[in-house]
Every structure is written in structure tokens, then in C-alpha cells.
Write a protein that binds this DNA or RNA. Structure first.
Lengths: 324, 324
DNA sequence: TTGTATGCGTTATCAT
DNA sequence: ATGATAACGCATACAA
């Protein structure tokens, strides 16, 4: 690969001059500018971003830590994030933590060594101190670590309320909520809270189940759902995340429960899949594109030393389809 | 952030010595080794990988270009790739090309500037020359660009044969194949070839449809499927990729076609979703984990200047579920 | 308008 | 066993 030196030599100038035309800084005569430009083209010169990063103390790379990009929700999230980041001149280093503490720690260390300019955390299994000691701009998804770290989330409480309410209004008398693992301290736990409040206020029977920590252990979730229906065969409403809802739909099919006649199901997220399957899933939509955009903005603002809003809660919307 | 200099100063030695303990190279006395180690711990020293990359002329980063990680197939692929790459000490820079020529070109240029050690291409919309001039280790998925660039794919021909055969055996008399855009020169076109051969040999009526270039334009695919069924309402078998198959299932539901009684559907890929939906999708399974592993291995071998196998075709397997 | 010298953080060569 | 120095490719302060 040609370096700035080669270009300088070919153009008969010094590296300084080449650097100048490269960065459009300072005065240069048209003549030399052209000479240099020509040499660049001739040599197919590309500035070495590693060298630039070293000098500028800035890599223009953002670390993205999520459970796994194989999970539709995070796949879509990652796609949006990559899009906005790239628009802003940042690249994404992808890290799949599988919500494994050790892996997450390793990734964080790795990202620090690689001098990423900031980290977007969609997985957060570490201790609060570990995040605070990071000494690097962070933005989290769906978790408020401290009031000094900005987060992006949907209005989980309102979403939980909407979901529970819909099921109740539609006549469900025994509603199950399958949540993620509540010990993870995610803001999505607020769905749980709202769900309980609504269901209690309306004196509707309810049961709650937590999934294990790993988000995409399909067989485990299947067992969980199976056991739930075994223990409570008369459940007539389920509220859970979209992907889990798909599994619930399958379980219902196996158990010959008709949807929505015998049982109604509402998801959360509105991933693309929700409207792709049969029956189309009623769900609470979170605006993933906007949230992703905001997350990237928040991170970049921090990188540039600007003040940012700490709480970034986005409105959700009920999307009624065919499972309720 | 502490640098090697800070450590040296604190330990009362020079940077050379610190570098030595860092890399376990050359002789050092236990005493100084300990002093240095202590200083490192004290300062929470982390070597700067950017500086290392510059010196070593090696970034330990791999570029991954795919259509979009929001598409389940590529999401799963990316997840596997990231996993194996990380195991080998490589990180993944994520690029979603959306099969857009201009974007892909931009990403390739960006990756070159960032001095990635190699590129994994799951999207390839450029001209052959552009890949050859890249001057960088490449491995492609599902496309044979030239015989000098190794590729990984499943046995698309066999998969097409298996799929067509199953539908024929199950009694389908008018089979549709919805393929990706054949102009992209992908190896998946071999499914098409095999499909045609089988269907012609068995004198079964068939029709073929190509999707547009963008892989995940849902409304467009919906229209395509809708039009297909409008023009040929008597189609009783469909062979296409898993994600499109999901859309076909939905269309069938809308059109009151019973699966598998009125129409049988077989997918290709066996993404996780295939066994999650109702009805569970019969499909041709490609071993994505193994393929991803191989792709990473091929790339790293090339990076290390070793010879590699050019054709890496993996066996497929018919997984019969409930749509046939 | 252009050139010289220095430094970004690291590793390797060559001394000592 | 340890240190001084150059080099990786680039960008800036300062000279000329």
C-alpha cells in the first residue's frame, strides 16, 4: 500500500504538503495541489486510518455490545445503529455477549484496548462500578445504570399497561406475563410492574414467569412455556416479548388452543417478524429506528464533550393484529 | 489513559523493559518484572492496540459485509462469524450493504483505509475486477467470483434437487420457485438450475419468480407473492428461502389455502425461525455454524499467507416439518 | 506557499 | 539484564 511518503516523492513535495491537500488545511498553490492529487490517484493512495487514529487519539469506532445479533430484535437494532453511526462517520465493532458476564467483561476490555470512542451497551451484566470506572462514553439500552450514564428505552411502563389493558378489555380472565430475567435490572421490568398494577386493579387472575438469563435459548423457553401451560391450563391471555410470543403461539398450536378465541397473545417490540407470521401478532411497538438514532447521537455528543439528556424514553404504540 | 511511558516511569525502568514484560520477550529479572507488573496494575495499564496495529502493520480486525444483519439469515451468520473470529483473536467491523453497489464500494474503501486484515463478503454486487484489485484476503459466501478467491457455500444444487423432489413426491403438480435475483450471480442460482432439471424431468408444471435485488423489502416481496398467486392460483407447491417462505405462508393464510393440504411449502436455510413458526417449516438445512467457522478459518489462513481450499461446499439436509 | 522537526504508543534492533 | 533509538504513517507547530 502506498503511503503519504510515496505520494510526496512522486509529486516532488514533502509529506507536509501532501497532508495539507489531504486535509484541505493551510495554503497551497493550485499547481502543487494538482500534482499531489495526480500522484494520489496514480498510486491509488488511501490514508491509513490507523495512523490517523493514533495521532488524533480518536478511532472513529464505536463498540456495540448486545446479547446476540442472531436474535431478531438485536439484529434489527444493530442494523439501525450501524446505519446511523456510519452516516456520522463512525464504524461498529460487533460484540455478542450472550448476556455472559465474563464475555461482556472481556469485550469491554478489548474495546478499551482498541480505543473505541464509545460503547453502546445493549447487554449489561456487570456491576455498576465496572461501568463507572470505564472512563469512556457509554449509552445503554433498556437499563439505567446510574444517573450519569444516559440510556435509551421505550416507555416500558406504558407498554405494559397498554398490553395488560387490552387483554383485560378483550375479556381475558387469567393472564400470564412471561418476562425476561428480572434480576438483570432492565427497564423492561417496568412492563412487569405495570402489568401487575393493571391486573390487580382489575381483579384479574394473573401469573408471571421469568425466562432464564440467556435471551435466545429456544429449548429452554419452550420448556418454560410448556410447564406454564401444564400448571395453568386455563390461561387465556399472554403478554411477552415478540420472539417469545412466537413460541407461545407454537405451544398453543400444539395444545390445540385457538388464537384468539381460546387465548389471546400480545407481544412487545414489533420486530418485523411480528407482522410476518400467521396469525399476525398484536404487539406493543417500540420505535427502534428512532431509538437507535438517538443512541448514536447521545454517544457522539458525549464523545464530543457535550452535555446530553440522561433519560431518553420513547413512546410506544399498540398495534392490534390477529392474536387478540 | 496510562501509556507504556507512565508505566516505565513508575517502575523506574525504560519503555523497552516494559514492552519486554508485556510481550514476554528477552531476559528480564524477576525483580524488575514484578516492579513493572505492579506499576501496570497500579495504573490499570492497557496496551494501545492502535499503536500496536500501526507498528505491526496488522489490525486483527476483519470486515464483514452483508446485506443486512436485520435479516435473520445474516444475523445468525454474523453471530457465528463473530464468535469464531473472536476465538481466533479477531474482531468484526460490521457493514450492512443492503446489496447496494455504491454502499458496498464505500464500505470496501473504508475497510481498506482502516487496514482490516481481510474481508468476509456476504454481499457482492461489484465487478470482478474490483474484488481482484482489492489486494486483500477475501472469502465470499455463496458466490464464486474467480478461482483465486475462496468461497463458502452450501450444496445449493443438491438442495434444489432435494426440495423439488420432495414436492414432486408429495404430489405437487404445479410448483413455483421464488429465487433471489439471478443477476447477482450467486451460487444459490444453482437451486434454480436443479429445480428446473427435476421439475422438467418429472414433467411437472413449474413457474419461477425472482425477487428484487434488496433482500429484505417486505412489501415488495408481498406484492410479488400476491401477483404470483393471482396469475397462477393453482400453484400447489412452493420452494424458496426460509424468510420468503414465511411470507408465502402468510399469503396462503390470506388466500385460504391450507398448508400442506392445498399447497406445500419448502424453504431453504433452516434459520431458527423455521422451527419456531406455525406451521413449522420444512426446509433445506445448511450448516451455518460450520460454514461460518470455515469462512473465518479460510480468511485467517490467507492472512497468514497460507494456501487455502478454494471451493468449500457444505452438504445440506432435508428437514421435514409441517409445511409439506 | 512549502519544508523541518516532533510526537502519537508501541516494538525491534543494536548497544552496553 | 537493561537502555537508547528508529520506525510504523500521519498531522501539526513552527520556520523559512
Amino acid at each position: 500500500m502506498a503511503t503519504i511518503k510515496d505520494v510526496a516523492k512522486m509529486a516532488g513535495v514533502t509529506v507536509t504538503t501532501v497532508s495539507r491537500v489531504l486535509n484541505n488545511r493551510g495554503y497551497i498553490s493550485e499547481k502543487t495541489r494538482n500534482k499531489v492529487a495526480e500522484a494520489m490517484k496514480e498510486l491509488q493512495y488511501q490514508p491509513n486510518e490507523i495512523a490517523r487514529s493514533l495521532y488524533r487519539q480518536k478511532s472513529n469506532i464505536i463498540g456495540l455490545i448486545i446479547p446476540t445479533v442472531a436474535h431478531s430484535f438485536f439484529g434489527e437494532l444493530a442494523s439501525h445503529i450501524e446505519y446511523y453511526a456510519y452516516e456520522c462517520g463512525y464504524k461498529i465493532l460487533l460484540c455478542n455477549s450472550h448476556l455472559n458476564r465474563k464475555k461482556e467483561k472481556e469485550y469491554v476490555e478489548m474495546l478499551k484496548r482498541h480505543k473505541v470512542d464509545g460503547i453502546l451497551m445493549g447487554s449489561h451484566t456487570l456491576e455498576i462500578d465496572e461501568y463507572l470506572n470505564l472512563n469512556l462514553p457509554i449509552v445503554t439500552f433498556d437499563r439505567q445504570i446510574t444517573n450519569s450514564i444516559p440510556f435509551v428505552s421505550s416507555d416500558n411502563f406504558e407498554g405494559g399497561r397498554l398490553a395488560a389493558n387490552l387483554l383485560i378489555q378483550k375479556g381475558c380472565r387469567k393472564i400470564a406475563h412471561i418476562s425476561g430475567n428480572l434480576s438483570l435490572n432492565m427497564l423492561s421490568n417496568k412492563r412487569y410492574e405495570a402489568f401487575i398494577i393493571e391486573v390487580v386493579a382489575n381483579r384479574v387472575e394473573h401469573i408471571t414467569v421469568q425466562t432464564e438469563v440467556d435471551v435466545f435459548d429456544i429449548p429452554q423457553n419452550e420448556r418454560l412455556i410448556y410447564n406454564m401451560f401444564k400448571e395453568y391450563p386455563d390461561i387465556d391471555g399472554v403478554f411477552t416479548s415478540d420472539i417469545t410470543a412466537v413460541q407461545v403461539i407454537q405451544a398453543c398450536s400444539r395444545l390445540n388452543k385457538r388464537i384468539p378465541e381460546d387465548i389471546k397473545i400480545i407481544g412487545y417490540d414489533d420486530i418485523q417478524l411480528a407482522s410476518l407470521i400467521v396469525p399476525q401478532l398484536t404487539t406493543i411497538r417500540q420505535p427502534m429506528a428512532e431509538m437507535s438514532k438517538r443512541a448514536v447521537e447521545l454517544l457522539i455528543k458525549q464523545i464530543n464533550g457535550k452535555e446530553v439528556l440522561m433519560e431518553n424514553i420513547f413512546p410506544v404504540r399498540l398495534v392490534e393484529r390477529n392474536t387478540t
